[in-house]
Simulated assay, not measured.
Amino acid sequence: MMQEKNADLSRLPMLAMEYIPTPNENAKKIVALVKEQGRISGYELEDGQILNKEEAVALAKQDGIRGVGVATRNGSEYLKSLPDESDGNNLGNLPSMTPDEM
């Protein structure tokens, strides 16, 4: 019985996602976060493009962003790192900038 619970717990990060993209061949990686007053307001992609949260969620749903899924909290959609073997590519570990630095 206990092993069943542990197996279920290991799947929780994926179960929390509403949408898990299958990245297309042109999908980009997120390389930095844009933060305003400590909260994520956007994302910088590897090609230098900056998207606000809504644009990034829409692009992820079109399979245009690698390594993220779409989750919902309090009725708002947001991007969440897909679990893998590396912590370095988690959104929370990426560099961040403010709109003033862009």
Results as ranks from 00 to 15, higher is better:
L51T: 09
M14D: 05
P23Q: 00
Q49T: 15
I50A: 01
D47T: 09
E54I: 14
Y43S: 01
Q37Y: 14
Q37W: 10
Q37N: 14
G64K: 15
E55V: 01
K61E: 15
R11G: 07
P21N: 10
V31K: 01
L33E: 11
Q49Y: 15
A16V: 04
A56D: 06
E55N: 10
R39A: 03
M14G: 04
N52P: 06
K35Q: 14
L12Q: 05
T22Y: 02
E55A: 11
V34L: 15
G48W: 14
V34E: 09
K61C: 07
A7M: 09
K61P: 05
K35W: 04
L9T: 03
A27R: 07
L45A: 07
D8L: 14
M1Q: 07
P23F: 02
I40C: 06
K29W: 05
I50W: 00
K61T: 09
N26V: 14
I50P: 01
A16T: 11
Q49N: 12
V31Q: 05
G38C: 00
R11C: 10
M17W: 02
K28V: 06
E54S: 15
N24S: 12
E46V: 04
A27K: 06
K29Y: 05
M17K: 05
L12V: 15
E44D: 00
E46C: 01
A7V: 13
K28C: 08
M2I: 04
M17Y: 05
P13L: 00
E25I: 03
P21T: 10
T22Q: 14
G38F: 03
K53T: 10
P21R: 07
K28A: 11
K5S: 06
K29S: 12
L9F: 12
A58Q: 15
K61A: 12
L59M: 08
M17N: 00
M1I: 04
Q37M: 12
E44G: 00
T22P: 02
M14C: 05
D63K: 09
N6V: 12
V57R: 01
Q49W: 10
D63P: 05
V34M: 15
E55P: 03
L59Q: 05
A32L: 08
N26W: 11
E18V: 06
R39K: 12
A7E: 10
Q3I: 10
G42H: 00
D8E: 15
S41E: 11
E4N: 11
E36W: 12
K61Y: 02
Q49M: 14
Q3L: 10
P21I: 07
E44P: 04
N6T: 07
K28S: 09
N26R: 11
A60M: 09
T22H: 08
E18S: 02
G64L: 12
L59W: 01
L12E: 10
T22F: 08
A7N: 10
A60P: 05
E25Y: 00
E46P: 07
Q37A: 13
L12C: 06
K53D: 05
A56K: 02
A32F: 08
R39N: 04
M2E: 04
P23S: 02
M2N: 04
L33V: 12
Y19L: 08
